[in-house]
C-alpha cells in the first residue's frame, strides 16, 4: 500500500508538471505533426503496447491490425495495418496522428484521442447519457499518447 501511494503520488506529480501540454495547446504543423513531447517524459513502449491493445484504453487494435501483436485476438480492418509504421513514420508524425488524426488525414474516421470539446451530441463515455461536464476528459492522457508513440516506433520490418 505504501509503495502504491508513493508511486501514485509520483505519477500525479509527473503529470502535473508544467511540461504537460494541455489538449487545447498542442501545436500541429501544416502536415499535422507535433514536434514537442506532450509530457517531456520519454514514452514507455511496453505501456504503449497495452494502451494500443486494451479495449478500455486506446483500443487501437479494433481498427488496426499489427502482426507483432499475435497474442491479442481480433484485429480490425477499418484503418491500415501498422506492422511497419516505425519504418515509415517519425515520432513527430505519429504523435500528431494519435493526438488528432484529423490534422493529418482530413475527415479521418480515426477518433481524436487528445481533444476535449467540439463534439456533436457528446456523451458520458459509453453510458449513452449526457456528459457531466462541458469538456470531456480526452480519450487518452498525454503520457498514454507518448507511450503509444514509443510503441508504434518499435513496429518495424526486422
Amino acid at each position: 500500500m505504501r509503495l502504491l501511494t508513493i508511486t501514485a503520488a509520483m505519477l500525479v506529480a509527473g503529470m502535473a508538471t508544467a511540461e504537460t501540454v494541455a489538449p487545447a495547446d498542442v501545436q500541429f504543423d501544416e502536415d499535422g505533426a507535433v514536434a514537442v513531447s506532450l509530457t517531456g517524459q520519454p514514452g514507455d513502449a511496453a505501456r504503449g503496447r497495452d494502451v494500443f491493445a486494451t479495449k478500455s484504453k486506446g483500443n487501437c487494435v479494433s481498427c488496426h491490425a499489427v502482426a507483432q501483436l499475435a497474442d491479442v485476438p481480433f484485429h480490425g480492418e477499418v484503418g491500415p495495418e501498422l506492422s511497419w509504421t516505425g519504418d515509415n513514420r517519425s515520432a513527430e508524425e505519429l504523435r500528431g496522428i494519435v493526438a488528432d488524426a484529423k490534422m493529418t488525414f482530413e475527415g479521418s474516421m480515426m477518433p481524436s484521442f487528445y481533444k476535449t470539446k467540439g463534439y456533436i451530441r457528446p456523451g458520458d463515455a459509453y453510458t449513452g447519457k449526457a456528459p457531466k461536464t462541458d469538456e470531456l476528459p480526452p480519450l487518452l492522457s498525454a503520457q498514454d499518447i507518448e507511450d503509444v508513440v514509443a510503441f508504434l516506433l518499435t513496429l518495424q520490418e526486422s
Binding site: 483500443n59 485476438p73 480490425g76 480492418e77 477518433p111 463534439y119 451530441r121 456523451g123
Partner: peptide, 25 residues
C-alpha cells in the same frame, strides 16, 4: 451522416464506408 459522440462516428462511417470490414471481432 452526422458524426456524433466523442468518437465522432456516423452510421455511414461504419455501415457505408466499412461494411465487410472487421471492427475488432
Amino acid at each position: 451522416y452526422t458524426r456524433t459522440g466523442q468518437l465522432e462516428l456516423s452510421c455511414a462511417n461504419c455501415h457505408e464506408d466499412n461494411y465487410g470490414n472487421y471492427i475488432r471481432a
